[in-house]
């Protein structure tokens, strides 16, 4: 069952990567990255149990925190400056045509 769950998580990660590559807007991509990160936390803890080494849980905790901080950082960056303009243009252009 552990291995089946690991495979399921890997499939979900593949689906998130598809959304990240496809994503029409910037925020879809950020959402995909965030979800990929939370799934990685689950994957690391599952892998620790599959290999019989629960010490992996420490890495999972650290990964959860790093994921949170990186997503918030990217959002702050997108809020304050940078890639706001081209994204808006792209969306309105896509809707008009």
């Amino acid at each position: 069952m552990l291995i089946a769950a690991t495979i399921a998580i890997l499939v979900v990660m593949a689906l998130t990567i598809i959304r990240g590559c496809m994503g029409p807007t910037l925020y879809d991509r950020i959402l995909a990255v965030n979800m990929f990160g939370t799934k990685t936390v689950l994957l690391i803890s599952l892998l620790g149990f599959v290999m019989g080494r629960p010490e992996f849980l420490d890495i999972a905790i650290v990964y959860a925190l790093i994921n949170f901080i990186s997503v918030i950082g990217v959002l702050r960056f997108s809020d304050s400056f940078g890639f706001k303009q081209p994204h808006q243009k792209k969306v309105s252009g896509g809707k008009d045509s």
């Binding site: 069952m1 552990l2 089946a4 769950a5 399921a8 998580i9 499939v11 979900v12 689906l15 998130t16 598809i18 959304r19 959402l31 995909a32 979800m35 799934k39 689950l42």
Partner: peptide
């Protein structure tokens, strides 16, 4: 095993939903 199965199913549902 039941919990893991339910969790995997919900995860897959979320992945399908995001697509």
């Amino acid at each position: 095993a039941l919990c893991l199965f339910l969790g995997s199913f919900l995860c897959l549902s979320g992945g399908v939903g995001i697509i």
